[in-house]
Design a protein around this nucleic acid. Structure first.
Lengths: 237, 237
DNA sequence: CGGTGCACCGTACGGTGTACGGGCACGCAT
DNA sequence: ATGCGTGCCCGTACACCGTACGGTGCACCG
């Protein structure tokens, strides 16, 4: 008994312990999330994830079908961060809270936006859908209209986050004139010449001004959209 | 003379002709676009592009710094499709036309959306910015407000296209009940069980209905947003 | 005790981006 | 005319990727 126990744990693996129960989809996804958050999506390779877990690369495939499946699981994990605890007293604050939280989550995890085209359909996504549907149900009973409303809000949030992260990648998110975009254009001789050609009067004027904060732009756009929705379904207000 | 000429053209390259002037950034980008359109973004590899051009892989690097630079050039080429010839009589039709055209271009070239986070800053992007700035100038003279408006519209379009392409990838873009999303959920035992748990009353109801066409949703969302903008800057109408 | 299944893993294959160095053709100065 | 620099084209090589395949040993069941 005792000898068998010892031998089983010692001889199990030449390099490390890596017992039988060390691996699970949850642990794999958790590590992948950590790597993506700290080192970017490109650093999430099967080899890297496995090494971080102290495990052989191919062992991952017993718990995750594909790398693609792993990415989908990651995206669904991110969807959990979009859920709000309290949707508030009315649909407007409900949507506002969800939208803000979703935006912040996406900005925290740029890889989630990069995974945008991947159709993540998991439990958390379902929960998120249910939550926004509940909010939309306060506006109208028509399920089709509910979906239209939800999509509009979601689209705006995703687009905002995408653009904001792209601007951040350029370094154009600094809300001061002669920074960011302006500097970027000046760095490229072709673009600078193009701008100096006089064919871009409005652009030239705008570049001399400071740009509004991304957060401000987001709030304004959201307000406009919600205004439009309100006018359609509650014109009396 | 004649012998030198012949020898120079014949001995130039062991495999093919591939003379001196065959390569240029434009030709490279054009081929890359073709490949991306027909075989997807993953098919755009330096080896593949070079082979299609009948040229050695490393030759591309004399005209394009990086693969990343190539992708940026591709994105800028796509921006050309967002330009409209006639912006129409007023800002509303102007934004509507640009938004529609941009959406259609993105749906035609899904790889452009996948490149979303890449900060493409090229001549065509500049032209597009100038165009929408010209439209926004009809609303207000404040450059900051102009940028806010433009970003709002752009964000909505990008978000719409992203979501629509993601839905298309799932096969959830079919506007009939019990198709797309519903089928997808039923295919996964976990999700089906989750849905049957009764914790998703709104979702269950919605899945029984047909979803609106993506184009309709887009038009509605755009209308809402433009309504909101109009109410802010032209409350008299 | 024998057998079966499953979790783990080493190796290998075909793919990727690109650093490096070499060869060749051209244009220019001498 | 001759020599040379410059820039285009390219073959090779390296590190890394996802993953198909086969092997190995533990745990459990009959």
């Amino acid at each position: 008994m005792s000898t068998a126990e010892v031998s089983s744990t010692r001889l199990a693996c030449p390099r490390q312990a890596a017992q039988r129960g060390t691996l699970s989809p949850e642990r794999i996804v958790a590590v992948a999330l950590e790597i993506a958050d700290s080192d970017g999506l490109d650093a999430v390779s099967m080899r890297n994830v496995a090494a971080t877990l102290g495990v052989g690369t191919m062992s991952l495939y017993t718990h995750v079908k594909d790398k693609d499946a792993l990415l989908v699981l990651m995206r669904d994990a991110q969807f959990a961060e979009c859920l709000v605890e309290d949707t508030g007293p009315d649909w407007r604050t409900g949507f506002t809270r969800v939208a803000r939280q979703t935006r912040e989550s996406l900005l925290r995890h740029p890889w989630a936006v990069a995974l945008g085209l991947r159709p993540a359909l998991g439990p958390n996504r379902l929960r998120h859908m249910e939550q926004v549907l509940t909010i939309a149900a306060e506006i109208t009973d028509d399920p089709t209209a509910q979906r239209t409303i939800i999509h509009a809000v979601d689209d705006l949030v995703i687009g905002c986050a995408t653009q904001e992260l792209a601007a951040r990648a350029i370094g154009a998110d600094v809300p001061r004139p002669h920074c960011g975009l302006r500097r970027r254009i000046n760095a490229d001789p072709t673009l600078r010449a193009l701008l100096a050609s006089g064919e871009f009067p409005h652009l030239a004027r705008v570049l001399a001004e400071s740009s509004p904060f991304a957060a401000k732009r987001f709030e304004q756009a959201l307000t406009w959209l919600l205004d439009g929705i309100e006018r359609t379904y509650q014109p009396d207000a």
